[in-house]
């Protein structure tokens, strides 16, 4: 078992920022909708509008980040392994079967996640933003293209809110299906995720391949040598780490201690919290 740095700092900030904003928007939104009565209508409207603007700013940053870091590729839907992933949730999970989709820094989402998040980002959130803006600026129509009624806008906005709430419930549950109940949550908080050795090896291999490919053009002559050397170095380092970790792995222990102890031998140093 290893820990791999999976979620970068901005990614986590974006995720948790989104979390707060969506929760705020859901709470205040259903107050505005007339479903609940917690904070008062005026406060609900104010918070909803401010959260909406903050969210839109966050979206702009997130889009920029996804484009500049190529991270958007994670969200391209794929049907590869989708059946396996479904089988895992329906059957395998009850029998300690391994996760069918390995998490890697190059592909950290399983096909179901890809599809869901893709729909979320490309369909639901943009529809929410568009209907939200129409809602806000309904009173300022451009001459000639005035909307007849708020109803369609409001009904779409409400329906997507229900979809998002449904997503939230399932999402909250599925994060408990990692190695341990809290390992996915911890990964999104700290960035480090616990993984099987096999998974880690793959990651390293991939990383080496990536690195190797990038090194190639610089050192044309020692091309293959350089590649292999790096590969060997990494694998050796990995083995050493494995041994160290094996010694320190506290079998039978769960939760934070386990994770905490695993953090220390990582080659990448990490600040104590």
């Amino acid at each position: 078992m290893k820990k791999v740095y999976l979620y970068k700092r901005f990614e986590r900030f974006w995720h948790w920022g989104q979390t707060i904003l969506i929760l705020l928007l859901i709470f205040t939104g259903f107050e505005i909708h007339g479903t609940t009565d917690f904070m008062g209508y005026a406060s609900a409207v104010r918070i909803h509008n401010i959260a909406a603007w903050v969210f839109m700013v966050l979206i702009v940053f997130a889009v920029f980040w996804h484009i500049t870091t190529d991270e958007w590729k994670h969200y391209l839907p794929t049907i590869k392994n989708m059946r396996a992933q479904l089988d895992y949730y329906i059957v395998g999970i009850f029998n300690n079967a391994p996760h069918p989709t390995k998490k890697r820094t190059l592909s950290k989402l399983n096909p179901l996640q890809r599809l869901t998040y893709f729909a979320l980002k490309v369909l639901l959130i943009p529809s929410m933003v568009i209907t939200g803006l129409l809602y806000m600026y309904f009173n300022y129509p451009l001459p000639g293209i005035e909307m007849k009624s708020l109803e369609l806008v409001a009904v779409i906005h409400t329906f997507i809110a229900y979809l998002l709430l449904t997503f939230l419930i399932i999402h909250l549950y599925l994060i408990t299906t990692g190695h341990t109940v809290t390992s996915n949550l911890n990964a999104m908080i700290t960035g480090w995720e616990i993984m099987d050795d096999d998974e880690v090896k793959e990651i390293v291999t991939e990383a080496v391949e990536e690195a190797g490919m990038k090194i190639k053009p610089i050192d044309d002559e020692n091309d293959s040598v350089g590649h292999d050397e790096i590969k060997n170095l990494v694998i050796e380092a990995l083995k050493e780490t494995e041994e160290k970790v094996d010694k320190k792995k506290l079998k039978g222990q769960k939760g934070d201690h386990h994770i905490h102890d695993l953090m220390k031998p990582k080659p990448k140093t990490k600040k104590e919290e």
Binding site: H33, G34, V155, F159
Partner: peptide, 13 residues
């Protein structure tokens, strides 16, 4: 808003 809703959307949601 706050008064009206679409019964279908509410039920579905």
């Amino acid at each position: 808003p706050g008064r009206d809703f679409n019964p279908f959307v509410e039920t579905a949601g």
